[in-house]
């Protein structure tokens, strides 16, 4: 990876002011929610729900559109004496740096002001990991499909699936197989959705796992807080690495 290349990618991203608008939006929402709630914990719960919906959506869609728009830029770079992998990684780190900065300012500062406790920081950690996961998924989607509209469609469906559809499916399975011992299966199902993992990381910290019912209690019992978080984070890391791996495999052989 070339650091100088990351610099230019980052510059390219900051030129359109979406990332800045995103930062301001996050900051306003976080500050607003904390200011409106009586207790910081209440604010955190509200913020958690926003973060779990908005962060994946914005990371995914913005990254996908950026990658399609950067096709010219990428083609120009690919004709230079640069490795394909260097180009892909520079794009990844450029996007990640921009989005991570947005989260740190937009979520990190309010958390530091209103709720500087483990729960607050776990929320920040969740937001950051979800950002990386969904940027990685965006890479996969946009490298795999040549057509822009189709790529964005795939990205939107991915978000829709993880944010909304997945929980419905899990509920359906839980009700359908209620007569069977489903503890371990539920755990596995949860690992298959990074958004669920993020929710668990925060809720475990809040010591309100009972609120998540069955799965949360189970999760807590199986792992305890510390191991639960380590497990969730490592699965999350896998969720970043796997899509990037597939993206790079395709990109290495892609005709530009």
């Amino acid at each position: 990876m070339k650091t100088s290349l990351v610099k230019y990618v980052l510059y390219d991203i900051l030129q359109n002011r979406i990332v800045i608008a995103y930062t301001v939006f996050l900051l306003a929402v976080s500050m607003g929610l904390f200011a409106l709630s009586d207790q910081p914990a209440q604010g955190l719960i509200s913020l958690l729900n926003i973060v779990l919906i908005v962060v994946p959506l914005v990371s995914l869609i913005f990254s996908t559109i950026h990658l399609y728009n950067a096709a010219d830029f990428i083609e120009l770079l690919a004709a230079q004496p640069l490795k394909r992998s260097a180009i892909l990684w520079s794009e990844f780190w450029g996007l990640s740096l921009a989005m991570i900065t947005a989260i740190i300012i937009g979520v990190g500062i309010p958390v530091l002001v209103y709720a500087p406790n483990p729960t607050g920081f776990s929320l920040l950690g969740t937001a950051l990991s979800l950002t990386l996961v969904f940027i990685a998924l965006a890479f996969w989607a946009s490298v795999a499909t040549r057509d822009k509209a189709r790529g964005i469609g795939v990205a939107l469906l991915t978000w829709f699936y993880f944010a909304l559809l997945y929980d419905a499916l899990v509920l359906f399975i839980l009700f359908g197989f209620a007569d069977y011992p489903l503890e371990k299966a539920t755990l596995a199902l949860m690992s298959l959705n990074p958004i669920d993992l993020g929710r668990i990381i925060v809720l475990l910290q809040m010591d309100i796992s009972a609120l998540m019912g069955y799965t949360g209690a189970l999760f807590n019992a199986l792992f305890g807080t510390v191991w639960g978080i380590i497990y969730a984070l490592s699965i999350m890391l896998l969720w970043v690495a796997a899509p990037l791996y597939f993206a790079q495999r395709i990109f290495r052989k892609k005709d530009l």
Partner: peptide
């Protein structure tokens, strides 16, 4: 890719970064 340092390329339609 290192060999590309010895090649200069002018594409058909010069597609350049927009920003």
């Amino acid at each position: 890719p290192a060999l590309r340092s010895r090649i200069g390329y002018m594409p058909q339609i010069s597609r350049l970064p927009e920003n």
